[in-house]
């Protein structure tokens, strides 16, 4: 795995510059049921395809940003700071 990723602040870097933050998910807004909590903590979609995910520019500006990436090809569709991210359904 040695694709390039574009940090919204710093520009394009080797993927090794970044920390992977996993699939974008949402914290329950209020106290979840045991089942919901379990799903939130332990379950991931693990999509074979395009997924929205978090990245951290560990070796650079240390910002967290969002990306959409095809997990089959490592093709990165976009990256953006959370405030600038295109609206889209965030998988629960």
């Amino acid at each position: 795995m040695s694709f390039l990723l574009t940090c919204p602040n710093c520009g394009t870097r080797e993927v090794t510059d970044f920390g992977f933050g996993g699939e974008a998910s949402t914290r329950p807004a209020s106290r979840p049921s045991a089942r919901e909590l379990n799903t939130y903590i332990y379950f991931r979609r693990n999509a074979a395809g395009v997924q929205r995910e978090w990245w951290h520019h560990r070796s650079g500006c240390r910002a967290w940003f969002l990306a959409e990436r095809d997990t089959r090809t490592n093709h990165v569709i976009w990256t953006a700071l959370p405030a600038d991210a295109p609206a889209g359904q965030t998988p629960a």
């Binding site: 920390g19 933050g21 978090w54 951290h56 560990r58 967290w64």
Partner: peptide, 14 residues
């Protein structure tokens, strides 16, 4: 420290 900073900044952002 690296993990804590990453986690703190992520929640701060969120």
């Amino acid at each position: 420290v690296a993990g804590v900073e990453q986690s703190f900044t992520w929640w701060l952002e969120t």
